[in-house]
Nucleic acid binder design. Structure first.
Length: 886
RNA sequence: GCGGGCAUAGCUCAGCUGGUUAGAGCGCAUGGGUCACAACCAUGAGGUCCCGGGUUCGAAUCCCUGUGCCCGCACCA
């Protein structure tokens, strides 16, 4: 038998193991009607850069679920891919171009620029998949996809055309979010709000007929050049007389009407609002209601237009400053007020977003949102943890039309053409040969220059990756997917859109469950970010501690849906746990020799060859396996990891291995063979249970066990009835008693500072009716020289230290080592505790409300507790009396 | 304004559908170079489960109020 290295070193095997898995196609999932499908489509990481710790968490959760289901015998598909991330990538590549070559993307031109982006995609996409391999992702690389590959493009076009034909996509001139730096429109979801310190400037608009006029407050005085009215509430008596009259725009003297509209709130500001339809969403609505013009005073570069007179060409904020000064000098500035202004910023470049009127493509949301809301309410779509359903619903219920066109080059080109001859707009799956309306030849048709929002293609990801719009076997078998794993920060961008797209195109939700996780923060709880420089590179952590350790830490770190902190010390702990398993396995391998057999339950004649500890560990392992399975079904991954860790470290290593050593080192070949078999058998189950969480180390150890197949393709532990077997239960009970005695003796030894090398005799006084059943275990594990059973206190020789246990009193004669003062103190403390305990329990049991209403099992358990406490109390009191004089 | 989260041992966090003597890892203290493991072992000390109410026979757990931290959405001149 090969031996394991003395210390666990993940570098020795992680890469090799991964290559073996990949080479042998172990991640590949096939359509297989005799198996149940389990499908996860990976949220495609952006090709903009490296994987961060959040990805590591996201990927690990998916890998755990996939590996677990694969072991359970599902045809488990985890479909990987990357996202072209239209705006983010374009910005990155353009930045790089400027830095390295001093060129703008316009300098290169569309075609050449796109070539550069594809090159970028090859480099960074490759880096990402390399990192995923380091993490141990068992995804099916044969099915790897890209949101801009041919199949996805086909899906995008099909989706667009179908929605257009249904009237759910339209083109229109509306107020949209504009990022002047990225030079594109943004959807509402792509605008982040930040509270900035700003001001209200109270500005007087003089009456057209020469009166003092109306004062309005504004946080954006530079938009005044595009004002078309002053609106007041019809209910606001202060302004009733003004309605229908006119005021003059300060300085410029342009006349604008005062109109009545429900929008102004008399409580806010001065009650009168300037109306600038081209630069404010609310004003846009007001303007539309009143049929007002939409002059524009800020252009797409965030510079003032000719509308702003002498400020034309100035930056919007520079203009604001100068303009306020001019207003002040001219006596129109009534006052200013410091105030916090919630300001929209571009989620990619942080530039302050400018609301602009622009011709864009939109998806009409109302009709699409409804089924998505119903699906969640009906339970066809489940969120884990459930609270995220509220967020999902809230967003859908308030959703507005989705602006999907982007003034960018990198992305799916909009499948729409304009006829240069008649102006007809043609939406089609393929480049039209001629204009259907006027018959002009294809040359007269020009395709829309814009591309689609990245999320328009991501929305189709769960089915476009499986072949849609074709009706493929994959699609029929693997769709709908089983679970979507993603961070809560992406519910709006992505989850919501996948759901309504799928409901519209496939007629059902794209997944049964949305498993939501939180963010990985830094040690101080701050968000990891480039600007703070506090990001931790998962690959560096893997280099130091191994992928298994990182994965286990990420799983252990927090409950589902909650943010977690990255604490390096804790990764070290999980690495140490891996090392523990490694060494236990090393022990097993060193001792099993050429053992045959599988640790089976009984001999042919039905009598047991298994000893108590064998039955105990088999039973315990089976119980924990069942619990872990249950936890996984409920997505309680961190609970599962804790239970497995406890089983391996506390039960298998600390107790079973220790309990079995005397047998292994002894001469009895038969019992030696049995415990060897049980050691291997239980270790195998432990490896199976741990494999989804720590795939590398488990596969590596497995390879030393002479198994016919790899662990990744083995099976999940299934119950064999140990847990229900009465003999096993009795054996387990005896082992628990043994553990209790061993612990008590160790405790006494430590408290008395008796050297560990010194063997101690112990005496046990059993409660009446209890059967003594003591094995070698106590001698070997607690350093006991002799175990005596006595009939009464009176039989105790000399000076002893005692411990009161369930069903017995344990005495260790320590002669001069006995500190009777400490002993009395200990007993008094114990008596106090037990007295409190008995009082509490009897009060509870005397309460009729409790005995009548609590479940019988609970009442029974409390009765037993009381009996035990009373018994212990008697023994403690007796002991106190016995040593009172010492 | 609307919605959500968190508050448990010195630190990082578990604790499911109410019934536990409230747990883990790290840290701390004491002892140990023992033949799987010092990336270790053994033992131990640490907790008015944020405050206050309520529901209940029974609350860390469910409900309400408050306090403190954090987040999302919306929005104001």
């Amino acid at each position: 038998m090969k031996e394991l290295a003395k210390t666990f070193d993940p570098k020795e095997f992680e890469q090799r193991i991964y290559e073996d898995w990949e080479r042998d196609g172990d991640f590949h999932a096939e359509v297989n009607p005799s198996k149940k499908p389990f499908t996860i489509v990976m949220p495609p990481p952006n090709i903009t850069g490296q994987l961060h710790m959040g990805h590591a968490l996201d990927q690990t959760l998916q890998d755990v679920l996939t590996r677990w289901r694969r072991l359970q015998g599902y045809s488990a598909l985890w479909l990987p891919g990357t996202d072209h991330a239209s705006i983010a990538t374009e910005v990155r590549v353009a930045d790089e171009l400027r830095e390295t070559e001093g060129l703008s993307k316009e300098d290169l031109g569309r075609g050449e620029f796109l070539k550069r982006v594809w090159k970028w995609k090859d480099i960074y996409g490759g880096k990402i998949t390399e990192q995923q391999r380091r993490l141990g992702d068992s995804c099916d690389w044969e099915r790897e996809r890209f949101t801009m590959d041919e199949g996805c493009n086909k899906a995008v076009v099909e989706f667009f055309v179908r929605l257009y034909e249904k009237g759910l996509i339209y083109r229109g001139s509306r107020l949209i979010n504009w990022c002047p730096d990225c030079g594109t429109s943004l959807s509402d979801a792509e605008v982040e709000h930040e509270d900035l310190n700003g001001k209200y400037w109270y500005i007087r608009y003089p009456a057209a007929d020469g009166g003092a006029g109306i004062t309005v407050a504004t946080s954006r005085p530079e938009t005044m050049f595009a004002d078309v009215a002053i609106a007041v509430s019809p209910e606001d008596e202060r302004y009733t007389d003004w309605i229908g009259k006119s005021v003059l725009l300060p300085v410029t003297g342009r006349e604008i009407p005062v109109i009545a509209d429900p929008y102004p709130d008399p409580e806010k500001g001065t009650g009168a609002v300037k109306i600038t339809p081209a630069h404010d969403p609310n004003d846009f609505e007001v303007g539309a209601r009143h049929g007002l013009a939409q002059p524009v005073c800020i252009d797409f570069d965030a510079k003032m237009t000719a509308e702003a007179g002498k400020y034309e060409g100035q930056d919007r904020f520079a203009c604001r400053k100068a303009w306020v000064e001019e207003l002040d000098a001219a006596g129109y500035l009534v006052k200013t007020e410091d105030v916090v202004i919630p300001t929209g910023k571009c989620y990619r470049c942080d530039t302050i977003v400018e609301p602009m009127i622009s011709e864009q493509w939109f998806v009409k949301m109302e009709e699409l949102a409804k089924p998505a809301i119903e699906a969640a309410k009906r339970g066809d779509l489940r969120h884990v943890p459930a609270r995220f359903e509220k967020i999902y619903l809230h967003w859908l219920e308030e959703i507005r039309d989705w602006c999907i066109s982007r003034q960018l080059w990198w992305g799916h080109r909009i499948p729409a053409w304009t006829c240069g001859t008649c102006g007809e707009i043609i939406v089609a799956r393929e480049t039209p040969a001629a204009c259907p309306k006027c018959g002009a030849a294809g040359a007269a048709l020009s395709q829309d220059e814009d591309v689609l929002d990245t999320w328009f293609s991501s929305a189709l990801w769960p089915f476009s990756t499986l072949g849609w719009p074709e009706d493929t076997p994959d699609l029929r078998y693997f769709f709908p997917t089983s679970v979507l794993v993603t961070g809560y920060d992406i519910i709006f961008f992505w989850v919501v859109r996948m759901v309504f797209s799928s409901l519209e195109m496939m007629g059902e939700p794209p997944f049964e469950t949305v498993f939501v996780h939180g963010l990985v923060r830094d040690e101080q709880g701050r968000k990891m970010s480039k600007s703070l420089g506090n990001g931790v590179d998962p690959i560096e952590v893997i280099d130091t501690y191994g992928a298994d350790a990182l994965r286990f830490f990420l799983l252990n770190g927090s409950a589902a849906g909650n943010d977690m902190r990255f604490v390096l010390k804790n990764v070290e702990s999980t690495r140490n746990f891996a090392n523990k398993l490694w060494n236990a396995s090393r022990f097993v391998l060193m001792n099993i020799g050429k053992t045959k057999g599988d640790g089976s339950k009984t001999k042919g004649d039905g009598s047991y060859v298994l000893r108590d500890e064998d039955m105990w560990i088999l039973r315990t392992t089976e119980q924990v396996a069942a619990e872990v399975t249950d936890n996984l079904e409920k997505y309680e991954l961190s609970v599962a990891t804790q239970k497995i860790q406890e089983l391996i470290r506390d039960e298998y290593c600390d107790w079973y291995i220790e309990l079995v050593k005397t047998r292994l080192y002894g001469e009895d070949e038969e019992t030696k063979a049995v415990c060897r078999a049980v050691l291997v058998r239980v270790l195998s189950d432990l490896l199976r249970l741990l494999h989804p969480f720590m795939p590398f180390i488990t596969e590596e150890i497995w390879s030393y066990l002479d198994k016919p197949n790899k662990l990744i393709k083995d099976r999940w532990p299934a119950p064999e009835g140990f847990a229900e077997d009465a003999d096993f239960a009795a054996a387990a009970g005896r082992i628990e008693t043994t553990k209790e005695i061993v612990r008590a003796v160790r405790n006494i030894r430590a408290e008395a500072n008796a050297p560990q090398s010194k063997k101690l005799p112990i005496l046990i006084l059993f409660d009446e009716g209890k059967t003594p059943s003591l094995g070698e275990h106590i001698r070997s594990l607690a350093g006991v020289s002799d175990i005596g059973v006595i009939k009464s206190e009176a039989d105790l020789p000399g000076d002893t230290v005692s411990a009161i246990l369930k069903g017995m009193a344990l005495h260790v004669p320590l002669a001069d080592l006995v500190d009777f003062a400490a002993e009395r103190e200990k007993l008094a403390k114990e008596r106090e505790r037990l007295t409190g305990e008995t009082q509490r329990l009897s009060a509870k049991l005397n309460n009729e409300g409790f005995t009548a209403k609590a479940p019988a099992a609970v009442v029974e358990a409390e009765r037993e507790k009381l009996a035990a406490a009373e018994e212990a109390l008697t023994k403690v009191t007796a002991r106190e009396a016995a040593i009172r004089e010492k």
